[in-house]
Amino acid sequence: MSYTINEHRHRFAAWAAGRAASVNGCRFTVEDAKIILERSAMVDLIAHPNDLPIPLEMDSFHRSWRNKIILEAEKIGLTNFTHGVAAKLINIYLKAAFVCGGYHEHERVKALHPPIDSVLLDELYSKNTGGLKKNWSLARKIRWSKFNSDEYEAVISAIRKVNGDRAMWEIEKFWRGYQ
Score class of each variant (00 low, 15 high):
71 L>W: 01
108 R>E: 12
9 R>S: 00
30 V>P: 00
164 G>A: 01
91 N>K: 05
17 A>E: 06
14 A>Q: 05
151 E>A: 11
127 K>P: 00
14 A>C: 02
90 I>A: 09
46 I>V: 07
154 A>F: 08
155 V>S: 11
160 R>M: 02
136 W>C: 15
63 R>W: 08
25 G>R: 04
154 A>E: 12
121 L>Y: 02
97 A>E: 06
127 K>R: 12
87 A>C: 00
141 K>A: 09
138 L>G: 08
157 S>M: 12
63 R>L: 14
166 R>G: 02
3 Y>F: 15
64 S>C: 13
114 P>Y: 08
78 L>M: 03
175 W>G: 03
152 Y>D: 07
151 E>Y: 07
106 H>G: 02
104 H>R: 07
66 R>L: 14
35 I>D: 08
15 W>F: 13
107 E>Y: 04
124 L>T: 05
146 K>W: 00
161 K>E: 12
16 A>K: 11
165 D>S: 11
139 A>Q: 09
15 W>V: 01
12 F>A: 03
46 I>D: 13
168 M>N: 10
173 K>C: 07
32 D>L: 06
147 F>N: 05
47 A>H: 06
48 H>V: 09
108 R>Y: 14
171 I>F: 01
38 E>Q: 10
26 C>R: 01
63 R>C: 13
71 L>N: 14
154 A>K: 09
71 L>S: 12
8 H>F: 06
134 K>T: 14
166 R>C: 01
169 W>E: 13
92 I>G: 01
177 G>H: 08
28 F>A: 14
63 R>Y: 06
135 N>K: 13
27 R>T: 06
142 I>S: 07
131 G>P: 11
19 R>Y: 00
